[in-house]
Amino acid sequence: MVRCGAANAFAMSITREEVAKIASLARIRMDEAELDRMVPELNNILGWVEQLGEVDTSSVEPMTAVIPQAMRLRDDVVDADPLTAGGRREDVLANAPAAEHGFFGVPKVIE
């Protein structure tokens, strides 16, 4: 396993432990069978995208905006657009799996 931050340096292949680590970072629970299936699939895809390393991009800027635009700022007005304004607690909570007392409910968190 090559760990390297430089451009054009790709990992050789991704291990089962690494897939488990990524799944954990992505907060997706995966059982053993799922991991077994995922490892070759991901390696297949990552192996294929490695061809990008053939291209010399040393003098190329990475794209940040496909259609160049200046960043807009909205007017500094309270509730400028009613659709994105405040005062809609019921709407915001309407689809919550567990809403109590005007809040989102989550399992007890004790550190």
Binding site: G5, A7, L52, G53, V60, P62, M63
Partner: peptide
């Protein structure tokens, strides 16, 4: 850098 930045450069 190896994957994402390189892909964005290819996009350019």
């Amino acid at each position: 850098d190896a994957y994402y930045t390189q892909a964005q450069k290819i996009r350019t």
